[in-house]
């Protein structure tokens, strides 16, 4: 049955998981992997009964032999991917970020990181983007967990083009890659697929008065904040960096931001401990760099339930919220 046929009997107000997928335009994994798979025969894709949620059912239709659905057995999926990678494949595993980073932490550490396998973890619906589904489906510890794993590369996509760019830029890394992805409804930051450089932030806007180093949905909020701060009194000129690479981190860009703008605010959809803010603070502290610095993250507690956009507003992960946090940091 085609999607069109599935849609037919529905009231226009109705939706289901199949018919809603086209609305999640920022879930670009399948499109990118389908392109790569054409010229990379070693590429295989795994998911754990979430192909309809992450859009990989499209890859499945095009490359059925190279698509493996393990059923709802995420730990098994990670270890199977390890076996595939140890036999010459590049394996992309995909599941909710909470399952990838928490349920499977041990398989990821022991079977992928320790053994240095070419497995790429497409960790979607990260942060609190699952909204009212609640804490079991939120992943606000995943950056801290994966960052602490040896051999692990940690990247974070702020929109659909960034997902594609990060999949491309990490395909040949020797070792596992944790690719942090949102829910697919992110507003675009990039109007084309960006070229990411390993271990480098991307400068989205230059500025003199402060720097916002943001990742994930925080990037769009930071850009909106920069607009707000440029247009309201006192006017501020704010540098915005997309921390697409969290590990390895762009120490040069952090040091330059401190030196040239004198204030750094990190923005992330994560627990304040061990995330992007922690990683930036490590570079500053180890460099003996005195700079006004604050982490704008979620509180160290479990989020309320609400639609995701309501949660972002509540926790200040919006242009207004970030602008307020920056004014608080620099006192003007």
């Amino acid at each position: 049955m085609t999607i069109a046929e599935l849609e037919k009997p529905l009231d226009p107000a109705s939706w289901n998981i199949q018919t809603s997928m086209p609305k999640l335009t920022a879930l670009t994994m399948s499109a990118e992997l389908e392109e790569l798979a054409e010229r990379r025969p070693e590429l295989v894709v795994l998911t754990a009964d979430l192909a309809s949620s992450n859009g990989l059912d499209s890859f499945q239709r095009r490359f059925p032999d190279r698509f493996i659905n393990t059923g709802i057995a995420e730990q098994n999926m990670m270890s199977i991917a390890a076996g595939l990678a140890a036999s010459g494949h590049i394996a992309y595993v995909s599941t909710f970020a909470s399952f990838a980073s928490l349920l499977c932490a041990e398989q990821v550490r022991t079977d992928l990181a320790y053994t240095r396998q070419k497995v790429r973890i497409l960790s979607h619906h990260a942060g609190i983007s699952m909204g009212f589904y609640g804490t079991s489906h939120h992943a606000v510890e995943d950056i801290a967990i994966t960052r602490a794993m040896g051999h692990m590369t940690v990247v974070s996509a702020c929109d659909g083009n960034a997902i594609r760019g990060l999949i491309r830029s990490t395909i040949d890394i020797d070792g596992p890659v944790y690719i942090r992805i949102g829910r697919g409804a992110e507003k675009p930051v990039y109007d084309a697929v960006p070229d990411f450089t390993h271990g480098r932030f991307r400068t989205l806007r230059d500025g003199r008065d402060a720097t916002i180093i943001a990742t994930g949905i925080g990037v769009k909020a930071a850009l909106d904040a920069a607009d707000i701060l440029a247009d309201s009194a006192p006017r501020l000129s704010v540098r915005v960096l997309d921390a697409a690479y969290i590990k390895p981190i762009d120490a040069d860009a952090i040091r330059a931001a401190a030196r040239e703008t004198g204030a750094i605010l990190t923005v992330e959809e994560h627990n304040p401990h061990g995330g992007l803010g922690g990683a930036v603070a490590e570079i500053l502290a180890e460099g003996g760099i005195a700079v006004r610095f604050a982490r704008h993250a979620l509180p160290d507690e479990y989020a309320l339930v609400a639609p995701p956009t309501h949660l972002y507003r509540h926790y200040g992960l919006t242009g207004d919220g970030v602008a307020t946090a920056l004014r608080t940091l620099i006192g003007r």
């Binding site: 098994n76 990670m78 270890s79 390890a82 140890a86 036999s87 394996a91 398989q107 320790y114 053994t115």
Partner: peptide, 23 residues
């Protein structure tokens, strides 16, 4: 394949057997 944490390697073996089939 490395081991030590009991319970993983049968899954890894499934991955290798799938790889043999694919290749």
């Amino acid at each position: 394949f490395s081991s030590g944490s009991i319970g993983h390697n049968l899954s890894v073996g499934v991955g290798m057997a799938l790889a043999a089939r694919l290749q």
